[in-house]
Design a protein around this nucleic acid. Structure first.
Lengths: 204, 204
DNA sequence: GTGTTACCGTAACATCTGTTACGACCACTG
DNA sequence: CAGTGGTCGTAACAGATGTTACGGTAACAC
């Protein structure tokens, strides 16, 4: 089975390379912005040549899509871990919302990457479809936790609270990553907590 | 004073052209995304040649900055009108927050333009500085209205509520303009109203 | 060893981009 | 009616960009 093993090893290498390149995409997106996200810039950050990038991805768009998917995957893993570790649905809800804000250097960078992806989606039906699918999955997760946190609520009230909470997390991250001096981590957490408390979803 | 009159007329023409071109920037930004925002595309939408664009603006960056400033100016005018027309500070607060969401076709387009500007600001210190200045002015306005709406609150509570409200408006607009089917106008208004009500800033 | 296969770097290509330079046109002056 | 200054379109330019094609190299098969 040398044939098979080698094939597996090679595919694994391929995936590792894709991952490394996707990380270079994130780094470039956060550092230089999407306007400077070129194959050459990505290759330089990834420490390889443009040839390798083009051998791993069929084109620039696939590069973005894969980086986008990988980021979503990692976020999902992180969120599922947080949810599993939480003692109550309300604690889980707060944890996964806070996870999406720009509370430290890494998450602020992620928020920048996020706006890059969003900007790249404008006018690109494929990327928009990707965004919608992922975002709806995110909405479903928040919905589930809100419903579990407030069993008595009707579906409409849940939906409204979910949208408000998602908006706060997204908006706060956006604001913070472009002006961290004004909107620091403490301000973001305070806004989130005040919000949860006001909606009746504060710590039991 | 023919000399002076002509000079004024010509400068007025220049400004009208700048305005027209900036509108083309918005249109392109909302339709094709910032990656396709080129001098040629802008000129085509504006119905002129690249030569005129380059005669009105020293370069592409100035083009973006002016479109950004003009959008801010118009938003400010609109907001000031809304504020003047409002019966109470709370009504004004709600009106100006709703104005920033993606409640109709035009405002959804504005939200798309907004993300384009944000994405263009990444890695560009000048554009970031512009964003921060405008955004802080926006924050001051919301702060003033929240303080007027809840005279008893301490500055810290005001600041937290302001940040939460700004985040909701920004985040909801963002979510809505990329998935209007899921997050319609009614959902956005419901989220805003629920939010104001929960924070104790609902209609008196 | 020899042929084969996959891997990947180099260089080229066509296209697009921002920017510049030049010249035609037009209104107005003297 | 020349002359002048401002306006703006055309075309060119250098550089960057996505993509393709080719060639060398190393591991493996027989």
């Amino acid at each position: 089975m040398l044939r098979g093993e080698r094939a597996i090893a090679r595919r694994a290498d391929h995936e590792a390379q894709q991952e490394r390149i996707s990380e270079a995409v994130w780094s470039t997106l956060a550092g230089k912005g999407i306007e400077h996200l070129t194959i050459r810039a990505v290759a330089a950050v990834a420490g390889c040549t443009t040839g390798l990038v083009m051998h791993r991805f069929p084109g620039r768009k696939a590069l973005l899509a894969h980086a986008r998917d990988l980021l979503h995957e990692r976020t999902r893993d992180r969120v599922e871990r947080l949810e599993a570790e939480a003692a109550t649905p309300r604690a889980a809800l707060r944890a996964i919302l806070a996870q999406g804000m720009a509370l430290d250097e890494d998450s602020a960078q992620e928020a920048l990457v996020w706006t890059g992806f969003l900007a790249a989606s404008v006018g690109d039906e494929d990327l928009i479809a990707l965004h919608r699918r992922n975002n709806r999955a995110w909405r479903d997760r928040v919905s589930r936790l809100v419903a579990a946190s407030a069993p008595g609520w009707g579906s409409e009230r849940v939906a409204t609270a979910v949208f408000a909470l998602m908006s706060v997390a997204e908006g706060a991250a956006q604001l913070a990553c472009f002006d961290p001096e004004t909107y620091g981590p403490a301000a973001q957490e305070a806004a989130l907590d005040q919000m949860l408390e006001a909606l009746g979803l504060g710590p039991a």
